[in-house]
Design a protein around this nucleic acid. Structure first.
Lengths: 123, 123
DNA sequence: AGTATATATGAATATCTGTTCATATATTAA
DNA sequence: TTAATATATGAACAGATATTCATATATACT
């Protein structure tokens, strides 16, 4: 095995070089990580799934999730600043809806992977 | 507006009832949340993306990510206990590889959503 | 203007998550 | 068996994240 310039061992230099060449770019990693974390939290996941079907106000979502309106509001702010949802005012009520309509695809794909978790074909 | 039995307000009972009917089941939420969180962490994301192309050992991955082997080992344990990866021993070297070969689909879909973030069609 | 409703927000707290460090285990070589 | 290599793991610490609580804001109604 050979040492690299940074001091860490490297048993298979060829593999590491190849992996680095195929690695995601930093921006892709950051963006994807942020997107997936947004959807991964159970409350936000259910909010996104619900808003994909109809627009709802804060207290509706609070009732759905059975948590405080303040907690929902904080989550919605995150989703808003991440351009996942947007709001529409009607009197004192703010209706939230999905701004990014492709997130449900991600949810559906994730669910399908959970149902058919492992299909190893040929090794 | 009407109060529900649980004490929380509910501005639009119809919407909440509909949302509850369409809501993900608890097991789906938990499973999906866990899966997405696994992929969402930048280091694990890159590990999965790398192992989708070739099997690699712990110190190769440590060199790729530029972190300690211990840190990688902890992450790999998480991925192992979640059935995302599996290991194969060859002498003292443990080669890791993906056990669930559908995760790259999720990564690819996520990337495509990042590139075409928002396509609102008709409201 | 004053009150009520619906939501937003800051700060504090609590919880979760990831890394580090020290140490343990497993395999190979001498 | 002793030493070396490669990896695993537990505990402690640090950082990120979510909720709560109190308070602020915006709109509507009187």
């Amino acid at each position: 095995m050979n040492d690299d310039l940074c001091g860490s061992r490297m048993v298979h230099k060829d593999k590491v070089v190849l992996a680095k060449a195929q690695d995601l770019r930093e921006g892709e990693v950051e963006g994807l990580s942020k997107l997936l974390k947004l959807i991964a939290e159970p409350g936000r996941l259910r909010i996104i799934h619900a808003l994909d079907k109809q627009e709802m106000c804060v207290c509706d979502l609070a009732a759905l999730l059975n948590v405080s309106e303040s907690a929902v509001s904080h989550q919605l702010r995150l989703l808003r600043t991440s351009d996942v949802v947007e709001k529409r005012r009607e009197g004192t009520v703010l209706y939230y809806r999905l701004k990014n309509n492709r997130l449900q695809e991600l949810i559906d794909l994730g669910l399908s992977i959970l149902n058919y978790p492992c299909v190893i074909e040929n090794y």
